[in-house]
Write a protein that binds this DNA or RNA. Structure first.
Lengths: 254, 254
DNA sequence: ACAAAAGTGTTACAACTACACCCATGG
DNA sequence: CCATGGGTGTAGTTGTAACACTTTTGT
């Protein structure tokens, strides 16, 4: 099956099985080399990047569709995943241009709505667990530093911006940052994450107090070694205590 | 034109002119008699209530559609209006039951998607400016106390709940409560509003300090008279200062 | 004159900010 | 032994919460 056959069959599948006119885009955030990253796909034979996205089956919930899309792209499930906005501008992109880029026969456009809304989700993932993999429509899938994004298709730049705003505002009120860390991590590593998300330096002593004050980290009898300085302790996110604290109202989910 | 003709023609119009499978519901909040209220419609010949809602024209933005729906229902425009969630459960309501209630011929259902998503907006309005008016599908339109809601159709109870949560969480971070007041109001009246939204009593002295500390209220040379006690001063929301404060970062829009 | 709500200031406590030195490790 | 980053406490400030009495007004 060549590319054209493949993409026509794909679009036929969507037109048959999915809710028309509504797509779903995920800003998948990871953290690596002291920088906050987002996962992007490069469209086949172009230098244009976009967010991983998909469509909603007629019989599944929108949240379920988001989990599915994320799973298809990263192989991960049960991640922190949150709907943050429905993007519904009257013109979100140039339909004909999109059609050309996808090398779709124009005749096919009868089966395709003139306009799509897109519901934005953001996900926080431990990048060590992810193997970014392109699909048949894309040549490349990789992490991009959020302060150095390439040219993005459609309104995906705006979607990333709004996702980031949401992430920033939530970081202050709930310890969602922990979803971005590997299983074991050090306090300074976590601080680097907060600094990357908030885009400002934080005071190590105050950060330590604040994070420890949440009582949701367990210090392990293990240290991160191999660096030319004092080895920091490793910690683990204590999900049990976290749930307990949520129940007590000690942690606020705004 | 009788009811059946009318509703068929209405649904034909929607099927022709609107985005299929996506509706829009507004939780319109007002404040009256020291209670927070929401505007509801009663379905023709039933005792079931629902939120005012509508559909999105194929060529208009979703935000614009929300403004339009709000205008059609309240006659008001340029209100505080904010999207808060896309409701996308796989089954949000019983389609056949809805069909029966609307007295639609079942045959018509070919033109109607099996399932609709709904994007929720909430609005804050000065109830003195609103004349609630039912449309041809509804017998009655009136304010309901949020702590004493009637039986609601579809998942509208959930939509109101999420709207309220959003409103509560935003009230703490931005002075949106002012959108619910008439042009001139007293500090104690505003306090009653905050108490109604947050559902807890507040201390008058602390409230006064906090609200005045925002520097966005102007005290008028006028008092509210006619009650058997000391007449309170009237204040006006100073939108100019408000914009200035927003620019300075003194007020935070999360 | 009485009932009802308005108006107002101080103190205690909690949360956040700023700030500097010694220690452990690998090279 | 040196460069690098980890680990830690205190004091000042800011914001929030608790608290009671006097004034005004209409009846």
């Amino acid at each position: 099956m060549d590319y054209t056959e493949q993409i026509i069959s794909f679009h036929n599948f969507i037109a048959d099985e999915c809710i028309p006119g509504v797509s779903l885009d995920c800003a998948i955030f990871g953290f690596h080399d002291t920088r906050l990253k987002v996962l992007l796909l490069r469209w086949k034979d172009t230098s244009e990047w976009c967010l991983p996205g998909g469509f909603i089956y007629k019989t599944e919930s929108v949240d379920r569709a988001a989990e599915r899309v994320l799973y298809e792209r990263t192989g991960l499930d049960k991640l922190f995943l949150q709907q943050f906005h429905l993007f519904g501008d009257a013109v979100r992109y140039d339909r004909e241009e999109m059609w050309r880029r996808q090398k779709m026969p124009m005749s096919f456009s009868e089966r395709w709505p003139e306009r799509t809304l897109s519901v934005g989700y953001y996900a926080l993932v431990d990048h060590t667990q992810v193997t970014p993999t392109p699909d048949f429509m894309t040549d490349e899938c990789r992490w991009w530093d959020i302060s150095d994004l390439p040219s993005l298709l459609y309104d995906h730049r705006q979607i990333v911006t709004v996702a980031l705003q949401t992430l920033r505002s939530q970081l202050n009120w709930q310890p969602i940052g922990l979803n971005l860390m590997a299983e074991k991590f050090t306090i300074p590593e976590l601080q680097r994450l907060y600094e990357a998300v908030l885009d400002k330096p934080l005071d190590a002593r105050n950060f330590h107090k604040k994070i420890m004050g949440l009582h949701i980290l367990t210090r392990l009898d293990e240290r991160r070694t191999g660096k030319a300085h004092k080895s920091p302790f490793l910690y683990r996110f204590d999900r049990e205590n976290y749930q307990k604290a949520l129940g007590n109202g000690n942690l606020s989910f705004v």
